[in-house]
Amino acid sequence: MTALSPDMQPTRAARGQSHWQTLVTQLVGLIVILGAWWLVTDVLKLYPPYVFPGPKAVWTEISYGLWGTGPQDGKLLSAIGGSLRRVLTGYVIAVLLGVVVGLLMGAWRPLRTTLGAYLTGIQSVPSIAFVPFAILFLGLNERAVLFVVILEGFIPVALAVSGALLNVPPALRVAGRTLGAGSLGLMLRVLLPASVPSILTGLRTAWSFSWRALVGGELLIAGAASLGEQLEIGRNTANVALVLATIIIIGVIGGLFDSLLRAAEGRVRRDYGLEVPQ
């Protein structure tokens, strides 16, 4: 095992200290938000509980929904499982399609100037606008939700791959040609590996788009275990605590997956020499 050089050890220690400082800052911010929430709802009582419940009521909904043992408990846990299954299925399909289409757009200029422009325009349309079309075309079922999830995830990946290929330094193209790489070899062995950092940024964007599209689509699916269904149940029963609990869970799950992708992106960027470890 190779020992760290003396000049690398302070850098590794500084990075660890920076991470701890970030965690402490985030924890302090969370405490401040919870304190302000508790002050407004439980101390000052500026709003009635059925309009704006306090942290305790929302935590009760979360605890019952995740690990409760009653006949109506555990609903949030099954909803999380159903939503994750749908979004991961749609996200994987979107990434695969996006990479293939992005490679084709990067290699063929006519396709890039036509399809690329259309995808950019479609990306500006809110995902919820596609839900009625998906329902009319595919029916009120999970396929409609998957369609919206795949569409919202596919476009950022395709545009990211195409743009990343175009931004590869010309010197790498010349080097690949000089070493005898053909068109396919140049694409797969030179251009695509050089584009990985930019593609990972597109994968993060695709995740956020897919996650938002999933919840919007699930609001219209009746009877399926999903976070969108929990939001609809909370609305129909005027249970604001359940709505807030579900929103918090949606935010936490989305943030966790984004953090994983962000960590992978940062690691790759450091390996490629695009970031200096701090």
Results as ranks from 00 to 15, higher is better:
T41L: 09
S198D: 14
R204N: 11
E275K: 00
A36S: 13
L203F: 10
D73A: 09
Y64L: 11
L103N: 03
E218K: 07
L203N: 01
Q72Y: 14
L136Q: 12
A175E: 04
L119R: 08
T120R: 15
G255F: 07
V276E: 15
R262G: 06
L188H: 05
I221H: 00
A194R: 04
I33W: 05
P193H: 06
L140W: 06
G54I: 04
L159C: 07
S63D: 11
R85L: 13
A94V: 13
R85F: 13
R262H: 08
V95Q: 04
I31W: 09
N141M: 08
G116Q: 06
T178H: 01
I135V: 15
T201L: 14
P132Y: 06
W207N: 09
G121W: 04
Y50F: 07
Q278D: 13
F257M: 13
I128P: 03
T178V: 15
A194I: 08
V174F: 05
E265Q: 14
G74R: 04
L111S: 09
V100P: 01
V243M: 15
G255L: 06
D42L: 08
F52W: 03
G266K: 05
E265A: 14
V28C: 07
Y64P: 02
T113H: 10
R86K: 09
L146N: 01
W20Y: 14
V125F: 07
A144Q: 03
L227G: 08
L203M: 13
T2E: 14
S195K: 02
P156A: 10
M187N: 10
I250V: 14
P169I: 00
P126N: 08
R189Y: 11
S162I: 01
V252P: 04
L151C: 10
V149P: 03
A158T: 04
L97K: 07
R270D: 12
L76C: 02
F137P: 12
I221Y: 06
L200E: 08
A158L: 06
V268Y: 00
L192A: 04
T2R: 11
L159S: 01
E218G: 08
A134H: 02
A238Q: 14
I33Y: 03
T69M: 13
L39F: 11
L260H: 01
D7P: 03
A134S: 14
K75L: 14
V40K: 02
P53M: 02
G216H: 00
